[in-house]
Write a protein that binds this DNA or RNA. Structure first.
Lengths: 194, 194
DNA sequence: CAATAAACTTACGCGTGCGTAACCTTACGT
DNA sequence: ACGTAAGGTTACGCACGCGTAAGTTTATTG
């Protein structure tokens, strides 16, 4: 039933989606949808909450703080891309439909804020491990870069079912870990032993 | 009159915006809006076209093919961030409202595709200048990374008026040109002489 | 096997907002 | 002055879709 809602919201967007279609796809009548899941807004929020929980779970399951920073980063990215690949509709609802639509944006942005905090903390720890320290706004900018680049590749992944989550994560590592300069010179980052 | 529309669409989104409000903010009556700019959809598309033209103009005005690749990249980014800083409502309408809303997404995605092509060509040229060649999908991934990271920082910039376009571009250069690895070690990329 | 409650459906009231018909008013030629 | 047209406004028809009242079937209990 939630699955049906996610599917319809993904295809049509919040406004264009109508409750009759969701009910029909669920195989029940409209008043049942209202009885179980409340209004259209409440239903949408329920979808958002389930999908964002899945996303964050996938990120954190991939976190192993004992590994070196690049491995941690790669694993986090792979977890994220695996969620996107496995739940394309969920991704679409979260980032293409809800992200900028009041009042749903607050839910999504809260989740994005959480993700940003996690990454910021990791970066900070990695810098400290080098015996250095960086301005917090520089760390923030780096985290924003990582998240934005991930979202962009995620969108691409969502539209290319043939692509593999691990390969996508590796591509992103090459871009953001080594940097464009190294890449132009032919250097490559490779995932270590699993 | 278009300005008023962009402002309202930016604040409310396409669906929540109503023509009465746009008319009132324009200082004319509703039938006049219809007379000059057509239906709500046509009006929205007109906004999109103006803003996307501005954005692309800003990107290309900043292009100087004689400079080394990193300088070209930085100038392109700065041009882009300057557009965002100067037209926050326009940015909001393009990327937060229209990007995933049929049938407007086709307009925005066409523009994004153009930008991606420009960047892809530049990257390709830079790789060739090093006497190397890369798989096209790797170049594509790098371009997607650059664009995604730019969008993420642009969104951040749009909500932080105190921030400077040039500084944002420099931050992004540090992240994507040098790479996170260099950055953790304390290296910094700096814009050359202007 | 009636009486009643639970589970579900059909059919509709109602608000909202797009797009326009009908109406007004100011300028201009005759 | 007066017909007429350009340029404007007010007021409304209409479709759409959310949420629910009223009605119907299926289960349950004395």
């Amino acid at each position: 039933m939630l699955d049906a809602a996610v599917q319809v919201f993904s295809r049509r967007g919040f406004h264009a989606a109508n409750m009759d279609e969701i009910a029909e796809l669920s195989g029940v009548s409209k008043p049942m949808v209202y009885a179980y899941l409340g209004t259209k807004e409440e239903l949408f929020v329920a979808c958002l909450q389930r999908e964002s929980m899945r996303l964050v779970d996938n990120l954190q399951a991939a976190a192993d703080p004992t590994l070196p920073p690049d491995q941690q980063l790669w694993q986090g990215m792979r977890g994220f891309f695996e969620f996107v690949g496995a739940h394309r509709d969920g991704w679409s609802v979260l980032y293409r439909q809800a992200r900028n639509q009041h009042p749903f944006s607050v839910v999504v942005n809260a989740m994005r804020e959480t993700v940003l905090e996690v990454i910021t903390d990791r970066l900070d720890a990695a810098v400290r491990a080098e015996g250095r320290q960086a301005k917090s706004e520089d760390i923030t900018a780096m985290a924003l870069t990582l998240v934005g680049a991930s979202e962009s590749l995620a969108d691409w992944l969502a539209d290319h079912p043939e692509e593999d989550a691990g390969r996508t994560a590796t591509r992103l590592m090459n871009a953001v870990w080594l940097g464009a300069e190294q890449l132009l010179r032919g250097e490559l980052w490779r995932p270590g032993q699993e």
